[in-house]
Simulated assay, not measured.
Amino acid sequence: MAGEHRSTETYADKLEAFSLWLSSKRYSVNTIKSYMDAVRIFLRFMNGKPVEEIGQADFILFNNEYILKNGYSAAYQNQMVNGLKLFFSTVENRKIEIEDLHRPRKERKLPDVLSKLEVKVLLDSLLNLKHRAMLSLIYACGLRSGELISLKLSNIDEGRNLVLVKNAKGKKDRIIPLGGKILGILHDYIRAYKPREYLFEGQQASSPYSYRSLQLILKSAVNRAGIQKNVSLHTLRHSYATHLLESGTDLRYIQELLGHSSSKTTEIYTHVSTQNLQRIKSPFDDL
């Protein structure tokens, strides 16, 4: 028992060191939480075994007896492997041979997309000006929900018809053009609600709108619009990108507008767009 107690203390020290390292590298709050949870779960599974004695066989055992046996998804498995790999490379200065962990291939799931008509019906169902402005801006600029609620009034440049998205995913800033229609909605909203700091304020003037409330607004609008698809806030972003592609916008510009680091991430929309597929004539029609 004494040995186990010493190991637990070591675990705590190692976890603290890992947390400090992640913070110093400016990983996002969500990423830090995911990686810390992954390491905690793994160390709990190790049941007090000293960290320096943990080897490749332990990783394989954890993969088979915890992740696979409990039926966790491929995405969860990859997240766990990423967290453990980083922990042992930074805190323990040794490498995990991930090839031995039977790491799953990433599932290529195509994102759900709404048609332009469905987007219009959805947005038209919003009678509250603030609610309509929020969801309209997500679609009009292809914003992530976190980017929307983090926007400040100063990020809207009405003179140049631009929105500046600061410190987005990957710690990058980007500029997105604002069309006349969305500018009109924003102008009406700002005049009516008079936000001070955040563009869309929460219950307190100095705090941003809550993500949960934004989700509920969308859910209610989807129900009112009678849309049967599985619609999330990110669906509006996917729809924006797909509609840009279908209207002839170059993929490189879409990548820039979405803030993707890799063009491979943006290329998924070439599989979602049905415009070219719809031009293909089935041989059945010639029978």
Rank of each mutant, 00 (worst) to 15 (best):
I156S: 01
L216F: 11
L216I: 10
I185R: 03
L244D: 05
S263Y: 10
K166N: 02
L216R: 14
K152F: 02
E147A: 11
A133I: 14
R212H: 10
C141S: 12
G202E: 09
R132E: 06
V163S: 02
K130H: 10
K264Y: 00
I182Q: 06
L143S: 01
S273E: 13
H271T: 07
L214F: 09
N167R: 12
L164V: 09
I156A: 08
L143A: 10
A241K: 13
S262R: 12
R252T: 06
K130T: 12
D157P: 07
H187D: 13
S207V: 00
L164H: 13
I227R: 07
R144S: 07
S145A: 15
Q204I: 03
N161I: 01
Y240T: 00
L233S: 03
I149D: 02
T265F: 01
A140F: 11
Y193W: 02
I175W: 12
R196E: 13
L244V: 04
G202M: 10
G146W: 03
D188G: 02
I185H: 14
I217A: 12
N167Q: 06
S261P: 08
L244N: 06
K181Q: 08
H131R: 07
Y139P: 05
R160D: 10
T242F: 09
N128K: 02
L148K: 08
I156C: 01
D173C: 05
S210K: 05
I156D: 00
L214S: 12
Y253H: 07
T265P: 15
H234W: 00
H238N: 09
E201I: 03
Q255T: 01
P208A: 02
K171I: 09
E267S: 15
G179F: 15
S273W: 13
L164P: 01
L236G: 05
Y139D: 09
G259D: 02
L137A: 11
S232Y: 14
L186N: 08
I182H: 13
A192C: 02
R196A: 06
T249K: 04
L164K: 05
G248N: 07
V165P: 04
V163L: 13
L153C: 08
Y211H: 04
N167K: 07
D188T: 04
N223V: 07
P177M: 02
T270P: 09
I268T: 14
K264C: 04
S263K: 00
I227A: 09
S263L: 15
H131K: 03
G179A: 10
S154E: 12
I149G: 02
Y253T: 00
S239R: 12
P177D: 04
R191A: 14
G159T: 05
Q228N: 15
I185W: 07
K181A: 14
Q255S: 03
L186P: 08
I190G: 04
S207T: 06
L244A: 04
E246K: 13
T242P: 10
I254C: 10
A225F: 09
Q215H: 11
L151R: 03
Y211P: 00
A241Y: 10
L257G: 01
L135Y: 05
L251W: 05
